[in-house]
């Protein structure tokens, strides 16, 4: 489903250049759940950004669903991400002035769903994640686990082909972490392709495969 061939990415100017990804090649099959581990500065988030179309490789080839992805600016990245990729981050990134339902709806803003289909998708997602009772609450009234469920809901409501997660349990206690991991596992069993960037071995343990990035 996803193939990264000889990806190179570095930051900084000529005098002070830091290479983060050097000739990286990865292949991710459809339905796989992969953990990306490595020390700080090893390029985990950079890899995630490249997969999401947020950042662009200096060289190499990115193939998504059989098509070569050629991105060169933010607008093309936004178009690429639209309805293809769901993103979950450590600090949840919810919009505080929108309710739980409205936050989940953000994932459908650019979808082709009709109003009725949107309502049904949101309702189903709330049910799947067990947060139906919270639908009218604002993020400030939610616990960390509840917030992350809402963020997952927003990421999966549009049924994206790829789910990218950056330290999704980093801000959660161990009990809540287990609940969230169960959700990821269930989503993966339902066919979702998931890439999780993590430091946590427990997270890596539930994944099919772990990629470890070395710091250059």
């Amino acid at each position: 489903m996803i193939e990264l061939k000889n990806i190179c990415k570095s930051f900084g100017n000529k005098d002070n250049r830091i290479t983060v990804l050097d000739d990286l090649s990865i292949c991710i099959d459809k339905g796989e759940m992969i953990a990306v581990m490595g020390k700080s500065g090893s390029g985990k988030t950079t890899l995630l950004n490249i997969l999401a179309g947020i950042d662009f490789p200096d060289s190499g080839e990115y193939v998504f669903d059989g098509e070569i992805v050629k991105l060169n600016n933010a607008a093309s990245g936004i178009r690429f991400r639209r309805n293809r990729i769901g993103v979950i981050v450590q600090h949840f990134a919810l919009i505080n002035d929108l309710t739980v339902s409205e936050n989940i709806e953000v994932g459908l803003y650019e979808s082709d769903y009709t109003s009725g289909q949107k309502r049904k998708a949101i309702k189903d997602t709330l049910k799947d994640l067990g947060i139906e009772d919270l639908k009218d609450k604002y993020p400030s009234k939610l616990s960390g686990g509840e917030k992350q469920r809402v963020a997952i809901g927003r990421a999966i409501v549009g049924r994206p082909k790829l789910l990218l997660c950056d330290e999704p349990t980093g801000a959660l206690d161990s009990e809540t972490e287990k609940e969230i991991l169960k959700i990821f596992k269930r989503l993966n069993q339902m066919g979702a392709t998931i890439v999780i960037v993590t430091h946590d071995k427990d997270v890596a343990d539930i994944c099919n495969r772990t990629i470890v990035l070395e710091k250059h």
């Binding site: 933010a74 607008a75 309805n83 953000v106």
Partner: peptide
């Protein structure tokens, strides 16, 4: 800015 970035993350163009 936070809300706008979230929108952009989910495909809403600038």
């Amino acid at each position: 800015r936070n809300a706008n970035l979230i929108f952009m993350c989910y495909g809403v163009s600038l």
